[in-house]
């Protein structure tokens, strides 16, 4: 291995990288840092998932998952969140071509879909508590409300962030720092969808089968 190859000054096609390896751009380091945060968030969620999986059978004589979960409502929540991930991607494309109109439309649709998701989830929680199956009923329900509620709290925070980004682009335009924030927001929103995939598979579908 020659010195040139080690330091990345060789032919770029041989190295498969940039020809001049300087410090990474701010956009890369920002994305990487936020990615680390998202992974730590996912590790936190994995603890709640582990708690749920362990406590799945500990119903203390109370209702089981199969009697509680309304899978049609869960399917609607899934559809809303998945669609919002898609429209968020579309808004990011609009931001990259500096089209403020379609950006704001895309973000507004994403916001409405997110709010619809939260509404359905809130209704489900209210119904469970009304039927006497609140988080205090059993260890199983405690872990259920903690896990799903934590995801709902993330979605709520995401919607606040979304509105902030709409306002920032409206007030300041597509500046480089605003674009980096948008990148982080898009990562956050897509990561929430990934966690929801785990929730509807493990909590609702496996939980009502068990």
């Amino acid at each position: 291995m020659t010195d040139a190859a080690l330091h990345g000054h060789g032919h770029p096609a041989l190295l498969g990288g940039r020809p001049h390896e300087g410090p990474a751009s701010k956009r890369i380091t920002t994305g990487f840092g936020f990615w680390i945060f998202l992974l730590s968030d996912i590790v936190m969620f994995s603890c709640f998932f582990a708690a749920y999986a362990v406590l799945l059978g500990q119903t203390a004589g109370g209702p089981k998952g199969a009697e509680l979960f309304d899978l049609r409502s869960v399917a609607a929540e899934t559809a809303l969140l998945l669609l919002s991930s898609f429209t968020c991607g579309l808004a990011m494309i609009a931001a990259d071509i500096r089209n403020a109109f379609w950006y704001q439309i895309g973000m507004a649709v994403t916001c409405l879909l997110g709010l619809g998701f939260l509404l359905l989830e809130f209704r489900e929680f209210a119904e469970l508590v009304g039927r006497g199956a609140g988080p205090t009923r059993s260890a199983f329900l405690s872990s259920f409300f903690t896990l799903v509620g934590c995801h709902g709290a993330h979605v709520s925070a995401g919607i606040l962030w979304l509105l902030t980004m709409m306002a920032q682009v409206f007030a300041k335009g597509f500046r480089a720092d605003i674009m980096r924030r948008l990148l982080c927001f898009a990562l956050f929103w897509h990561a929430l969808d990934i966690i929801w995939v785990a929730i509807f598979s493990v909590v609702y579908l496996l939980g009502s089968a068990a």
Binding site: R27, I28, G31, L90, I93, L183, L187
Partner: peptide, 21 residues
Amino acid sequence: PSDLAPGDEEEVRVGPRLAGY
């Protein structure tokens, strides 16, 4: 053209990105 990060594409070409989503 530019550096990449997750959630990032190297060129502003709407067609392929839209197709990807």
